[in-house]
């Protein structure tokens, strides 16, 4: 355990890494938005199994920001994918909004991901054939069926336009990703992540592909929307300056999360 009291190895029974354990204990006990217990995830490499997550614990609360750092190949993205229900851990428990997700079917996890989780990737991952507006609308298109879409189309488009406008893209809505700069693409990706009004915003190296100035703008934007909308912001990053702005910081080391910094 370090000076924040946040080191929680897999076999620890001292409870999960949480806001409380980071030394800023809430006045009243709160239900975590996401609670991971003893997550294990390994990959078979021939005869050997490489254990990337080796019993990871973490609790994430509404409105907080968390930075996860670690060496390349330490398993940060694997952890993020597991927390975001894209990947299923080999063992352990992962509860999102009170629902144990490790036993859910693939489609049930997809539904939960669509409604509760927003992703922002290092390389933006926009659909090249769609305009900025259509990229931002994608999660809502996935959420609603064709009939509901016809009824709600106008409202949803207005919502997407407002979001893009808020992120400074009012003049770029009809542009395809190839016609946008890196910073603009990342803002479209943020708009897309926010479109479903998720409670968890998972960002995988969100500034990793941007210049310093644009990185600052994007980072400001992420923290701003997180505070304004009470999203839980999880940042996987190599950028210590970005990590320093988070409420809590963790290092992923040998498959386990270790809290560091005040």
């Amino acid at each position: 355990m370090n000076d924040t009291g946040a080191v929680l190895p897999a076999d620890s029974d001292s409870g999960p890494t949480s806001m409380a354990s980071a030394g800023e204990a809430p006045q009243e006990p709160r239900e975590p938005v996401l609670s991971a217990r003893n997550l294990v995830r390994g990959y078979r490499m021939g005869e050997q199994t490489l254990e990337v997550l080796a019993g990871t614990h973490v609790d994430l609360y509404a409105g907080e920001s968390v930075a996860i750092m670690g060496r390349s190949g330490s398993g940060k993205s694997t952890l993020l994918h597991s927390l975001g229900l894209l990947d299923r851990p080999d063992s352990g428990s992962l509860v999102v909004h009170g629902v144990e997700t490790t036993t859910l079917t693939r489609s049930a996890r997809a539904r939960l991901r669509n409604k509760r989780i927003g992703y922002v990737f290092q390389f933006y991952h926009l659909i090249p054939e769609l305009s900025a507006l259509d990229n931002a609308l994608l999660p809502r298109r996935i959420e609603v069926g064709p009939l509901r879409w016809i009824g709600k189309q106008k409202e949803m488009r207005e919502h997407a336009r407002a979001l893009l406008d808020e992120l400074g893209l009012s003049t770029r809505m009809a542009h395809k990703p190839s016609q946008l700069s890196g910073g603009e693409r990342q803002r479209v990706a943020i708009a897309r992540a926010l479109m479903s009004e998720p409670t968890l915003l998972l960002c995988d190296e969100p500034t990793g592909n941007l210049d310093e100035r644009t990185s600052e703008v994007i980072a400001d934007l992420l923290f701003q929307v997180s505070v304004e909308r009470s999203h839980t912001l999880v940042l996987v990053t190599h950028d210590s300056d970005l990590a320093a702005r988070a409420d809590r910081r963790f290092q992923l080391h040998e498959g386990k999360l270790e809290a560091f910094g005040a």
Partner: peptide, 14 residues
Amino acid sequence: RDIGILSAMGAPAG
């Protein structure tokens, strides 16, 4: 990659 994006956005496999 788009398949991965769609899945990340919550599109079911079907």
